[in-house]
Design a protein around this nucleic acid. Structure first.
Lengths: 168, 168
DNA sequence: GTATATTTTCAATATATACTGAAAGTTTAA
DNA sequence: TTAAACTTTCAGTATATATTGAAAATATAC
């Protein structure tokens, strides 16, 4: 396979995977484009390569910066902004984990903890089942949270090394 | 907080979390409803409790069965089907991991492996950057795949126990 | 200072996704 | 065997989500 086709397929696959995981397709595609680009690109170049509008490109690039996946670069004598992606995949994975933990996992954990304090009759099967499910999920979610916390602090080889030696 | 309010909040939160992770809100809500229900429920009961149509209830219940999260029950002398959820959260987590691995991770892994074989000039920065990114992502994805494989085979205490002792 | 290049905003619009409801299909108790 | 109970299907519709594009705001080279 030649480079242009491979690039194309990579960007499409990244977009599809993103959308399956609740990340907007265009955002994932812009990220993919910058990830495989050796140079920083302008909004104009992103628009052209992905055939998207200026508004869309601008908002998507800003979002990616908020996710901590892109940075801006300014060049002296030039007015426009250049965008480039963090290239280290382990750093990217941690960054995504960090954001999703903060945005999605933590609010749910907080609610589950509140729900565990629901009042009711211990003999009521409705109550018992509810309480058990909530408690169990809370416990699992708490452990996921702790695992992510560990991952965020960890060196790359935490993931690439340790786990497999232990559980082989 | 009283039980009805707590149930309501739990179902809403589960639906929201699902939709943030690419799982249709209604499907997550139906799952939540059955998870906290001590008894198996009929399509009719699900329709009523979540205020959804018969078509939607039917398709969603079927989907959840395909995800391995629900089972049907037949009662002698009754024609209708009763649905109940797997209640063990560790089993649920593994089941979801298994399906998403199969549906989403594995196709991507296959493509990435193909893309690694892209032809080009080693001196071309475009080529070098593309190849490095794809190789790195493939490696990470391969490790995620292996970790999930381990998780699928593991006992509950793999997650609830080991990891934390090691990395505390 | 200011003309203009560039970025940002957001109402209007388009697209993708989910849901409804009624009709068709299927099952089973009698 | 058949009629009613129940399940499934899917075209039409609604809702949610994403995108456009042009106008407004901003920044900077000269």
């Amino acid at each position: 396979m030649e480079l242009p086709e491979a690039k194309q397929k990579f960007i499409e696959a990244w977009g599809k995977l993103g959308s399956e995981w609740g990340i907007n397709r265009t955002m994932a595609q812009v990220h993919a484009l910058l990830l495989i680009s050796p140079e920083a690109l302008t909004t104009e170049q992103v628009m052209e390569q992905l055939q998207i509008s200026r508004g869309n490109a601008n908002m998507t690039l800003r979002d990616l910066i908020n996710w901590g996946l892109l940075e801006k670069e300014h060049r002296t004598g030039e007015r426009k902004e250049y965008f480039f992606a963090e290239k280290d995949v382990w750093t990217i994975a941690r960054q995504v984990a960090k954001e999703r933990k903060r945005r999605e996992l933590e609010p749910v954990l907080k609610l589950l903890t509140q729900l565990q304090e629901v009042q009711g009759d211990e003999k009521d099967p409705e109550y018992k089942t509810f309480k058990k499910s909530v408690t169990d999920i809370n416990k699992l979610a708490g452990n996921v949270d702790k695992t992510l916390e560990t991952m965020l602090k960890a060196e790359e080889n935490w993931f690439f090394g340790s786990i497999f030696k232990i559980f082989k």
